[in-house]
Design a protein around this nucleic acid. Structure first.
Lengths: 334, 334
DNA sequence: ACTACCCGCGAAACCGCTTTCACGAAGTCT
DNA sequence: AGACTTCGTGAAAGCGGTTTCGCGGGTAGT
């Protein structure tokens, strides 16, 4: 099959009776071209179905139109729907702005591997990171001047724009809800405390707790790791050390679900004896019995925020971090 | 900051005392260069830390080194961890072969939108599709000669290589397991029957059923849509129309989980009264109580298979569809 | 020993678009 | 009216590789 040779500038220029330079100007929105000639070019473009060759354009201009989304290896492997959802939000926004998303999975903790090289090589116009445990890669790249956006709150406060869910506020309102429901002894099962999100959620819990005038008894704060098992484990521990616990705020739904299971196995009624609040509004929140009261975060919105922050940067605008709101979803568990 | 100008061929060529053409040959593995000169070039490359500019290379050679992964809009929005996981498998294999993954979300059902244009424009060397309901886009692109791979079994039998899980075999062995456990009246909750996977899983169920010598009673086959709600809905229906049902094969874990929930709410014991088998071995299979017996599919392997099929095609090799095996995971629900 | 090949290699064209530069025409200022 | 800008435009030089083409020298055939 003869691949219908795509037209080039030279063809368009000839058809419109102008120079290639003018074609380029028109196609790049240069205002200085006389409207008449601009129209002639536009007509030729339409008529011939011209589409710019991005590669050639990238070579000449130094802008590739590609934005990298960098994902830690273990993040992806854990098949957490979270990153996929965020990425789809990012991708939507970017493509609306004529940019494309290239996906890169970086071996976890790699500061100077292939991904770093690729990003440094100028083949992408920007990079969006999902930061979990370490900011090292991002820091390493910072001095290259590559526009970057971080999804999640960075550990060290570099002045790199980031987007994040309102972890603090969400945790605060979740805990507050427990308090309002009459809970007197509220425990917290944190997420992997090496992540900023887990810390912020813990802080939200503490804040709400503090407002009651008390401070959490020793052992009421359990350091989990976001896994189902850690939820189960800590629920078991709690029941031993604090048999009178009547509320649990878990840093994600998975741990909350684990906790509920153990609670029930050990003869506690949820929510009658112990009320449980999770975080994320993941699928499991709906399937757990009783269904989990939880803090919903809008993951797609988070991705879109990341994308728009990138766009803004590319346009040279000033950018500020974006914190997306959460929502308390009341179901049966609290 | 002065961006440490990356060296170009001309620098390498000078340093090695050869022509740019020779540099190119060495870097592209052309055997015809004398080993001594090749070594000189290689040394210069190492010493100067040279890295090829992909964009320039793409322009000159017509090969971009980019492979598109095309995802239906609704697939992604449903935050199904499935596609993310597949993509990570794809991405791994591709990057091992010096290729990069660009993500594209295509508005569902769009046959000739921006994505199609982009793919036709020759800016990617190949495309991997996640086909759900329609082959239209793929068909449309077929005549361009773009190397393509489909994830999932296509509806119409075009001769485009695809990879898929052994849906039939998995469903067969799942149903068989129910039979072996002594179930007499086994229902099937299918997935969205507009997908080939759902059809194949139904066929697997039917095959196992047939081998018992009977045929499913009317109403034992319920057309679901992979959602939690449809699982719940059909379980409720089943209990009404066939109160004596003692086994359910659901086309995915989500529906199985929904079914289990309803069964329990309605006073049936799982697995004592009704045994349930799911499909996927998703996270929810482990978190549901009782944990789901299910058919595990290796999603990462599926992605890797798709990636390798693409590589093979790019190398001009003959490619055949790849069907990845499934595995029966026995837990508590059956 | 002479022509016919083959092989390794460099010169140069080329991929398709962007951007600088300079030029002529038109407008502005004394 | 002459000198100085400003403005729209085209010619041409890249961007950094790849690839064709052909040359010179060595090998082989007769």
């Amino acid at each position: 099959m003869v691949p219908a040779q795509r037209p080039t500038y030279s063809v368009i220029a000839k058809a419109a009776g102008v120079s290639e330079a003018t074609v380029s100007r028109v196609l790049n929105g240069d205002e200085s071209v006389h409207p008449d000639r601009a129209k002639r070019v536009q007509d030729a473009v339409d008529k011939l179905g011209y589409r710019k060759n991005r590669v050639a354009s990238a070579l000449a201009s130094g802008r590739s139109g590609l934005i990298a989304v960098v994902i830690d290896d273990d993040l992806s492997v854990f098949s957490d729907p979270f990153w996929g959802t965020v990425t789809s939000g990012v991708s939507r926004i970017l493509s609306e702005n004529g940019l494309h998303t290239v996906l890169m999975v970086s071996p976890v903790g790699s500061v100077d591997g292939g991904v770093a090289h690729y990003l440094k090589s100028g083949e992408v116009d920007g990079a969006i990171f999902f930061v979990l445990h370490s900011d090292a890669l991002v820091n390493n790249l910072k001095k290259t001047g590559l526009p970057m956006v971080i999804t999640g709150t960075p550990h060290s406060s570099m002045d790199i724009p980031f987007v994040d869910t309102d972890n603090f506020g969400g945790a605060y309102s979740g805990t507050k809800h427990l308090i309002n429901q009459g809970c007197k002894k509220i425990a917290c099962i944190t997420g992997d405390i090496g992540t900023t999100a887990a810390k912020q959620r813990l802080d939200g819990y503490l804040q709400a707790f503090r407002e009651t005038g008390g401070i959490p008894a020793k052992g009421l704060i359990c350091e989990g790791d976001y896994s189902l098992e850690s939820g189960m484990h800590h629920a078991r521990m709690l029941l031993e050390t604090h048999p009178d616990v009547d509320g649990i705020f878990a840093s994600n739904d998975l741990m909350a679900a684990g906790a509920v299971t153990v609670l029930q196995d050990l003869g506690r009624l949820v929510p009658e004896d112990v009320k449980v609040v999770g975080f994320d509004d993941a699928l499991i929140a709906q399937t757990t019995r009783p269904a989990l009261t939880t803090i919903r975060q809008d993951v797609v919105a988070l991705g879109e925020a990341a994308g728009s922050l990138m766009i803004a940067q590319l346009n040279g605008e000033d950018v500020k971090p974006i914190i997306t709101p959460t929502e308390l979803i009341i179901r049966a568990s609290a």
